[in-house]
Every structure is written in C-alpha cells, then in structure tokens.
C-alpha cells in the first residue's frame, strides 16, 4: 500500500448525500479479477450517457476536475455494499482523499486499506471546502495527515480527527496482515482453547 503523508491537489465538489457504492462503481463492473483499471468506470452512471459519451455536467468531466485528487462529498458517503471496488475505482482515477461529514463504516475502513484517506469534518467545514472546491484548479487544498489538517486555499487550517492506529498505518504504508502476524502466538493459543464442541467444516 502507498503511504499517505501530505497531499496537495485539486478538489472536486460532489454535493450529494448518501452516495452509495452502486453509484461509485455499478455492479456490472465487479466482474474483474484485478484491483486496477476501474478508474474509467468510476461513477459510471453519473458520468456517461447510455451511448458511452460523457455527461458534460458531471463534475469529473469538467476540465478543471479531470485530474482531481480530492473529493468533497455529502454525508453518509459510500453507503451500501462492502465492495472494495469502490475505493479501487477512486484510487485508479487518482483520488487519494475523500472529505465528507460522515461515511458508511465498511467503505471508511476499506479506504484506509488502500491508501485513501477519508476525512470526516463537520457539515459547516465541508460546506466551506465544497465552496473552495467549486473554484476549480485555482483552489488547491492540502491534506496533511501527520498534522491532521486540511489547508484551505487562503491558508486557513481545519483540524480533523483520525484513528491513531489507522493514521500510523497510512503514514507508513503498513500492511495489516504483517502487523497481525506479529500476534501469531496469541492466535495459536486462542485456537488451542476453543471449546471441543466447536465443529469444523470438513468433508464437503
């Protein structure tokens, strides 16, 4: 996983609440067996017409947001399914940070596993950032994970909270599996102490 330290880039405003994972990446694109290549299908139903042409109004189709690395969105972003294809599609498009008043739990966790930083900020702060983002390429935001601040184009800093463990992993690009395997002795012990009645799945 790539580290996330400081990100400066254009922010795209997606002023919609409850953006669900079917909107982020519709089910028909889940047939891939790879993690990459989903960027072109990100927000497919919002982004393209039925004939495959682009909908010019959609934010990521506007020239100033085509290279956006930050997304500012409405509350409950990422609700719906557990598909990790949602963060993969965002990442493949180039988005490394999503800022919203709230996120759905599974999506929120999935972001951290893929080097994407989900930033939760109060609604008023998100509205300010939404307004900043609406200014386009001239209005770059900086997200500094170590200092836990979003820096607005005028230099004003907005502090955000982040889970200490997830912050540590993201700053250092750490792999959860490696970290967990440091606890393998405890896992062995746990398994030895399982009750004898606990069945196994065998003979399928």
């Amino acid at each position: 996983m790539d580290k996330f330290t400081v990100l400066t880039g254009a922010a795209a405003p997606l002023n919609m609440a409850n953006v669900d994972t079917d909107k982020i990446i519709p089910a028909r694109f889940l047939k891939t067996i790879k993690r990459t290549g989903l960027g072109k299908d990100l927000f497919s139903n919002l982004r393209y017409n039925d004939d495959g042409s682009e909908k010019p109004d959609f934010v990521l189709n506007q020239p100033k947001y085509r290279k956006a690395e930050i997304l500012v969105a409405g509350e409950n972003f990422g609700c719906g399914s557990s598909r990790e294809h949602a963060p993969w599609a965002l990442l493949d498009f180039g988005i490394r940070c999503v800022i919203a008043p709230s996120f759905a739990d599974i999506f929120h966790g999935n972001c951290f596993k893929n080097g994407i930083l989900p930033v939760v900020l109060p609604a008023e702060a998100c509205e300010q950032l939404m307004a900043d983002a609406a200014l386009g390429t001239n209005a770059r935001l900086t997200v500094d994970l170590a200092r836990q601040v979003v820096v607005r184009p005028d230099g004003q800093e907005i502090h955000f909270e982040v889970d200490a463990f997830r912050k540590h992993c993201l700053l250092n690009g750490l792999d959860d599996i490696g970290l967990t395997l440091e606890h393998v002795a405890a896992i062995d012990t746990y398994e030895k102490n399982e009750p004898a009645w606990m069945p196994v799945i065998a003979g399928v």
Binding site: S82, R83, E84, K113, I177, T180
Partner: peptide
C-alpha cells in the same frame, strides 16, 4: 461484511483488526 483486503486478512490470519 468486509472488504477484499479484509478477506485476504482473514484468509491469512483467521482474525481481523
């Protein structure tokens, strides 16, 4: 429900963080 990274995590460790 879990994401694919966690699916890998459970396959490898039988645990989750």
């Amino acid at each position: 429900g879990i994401g694919t990274s966690e699916v890998e995590h459970v396959l490898a460790t039988q645990t989750l963080l």
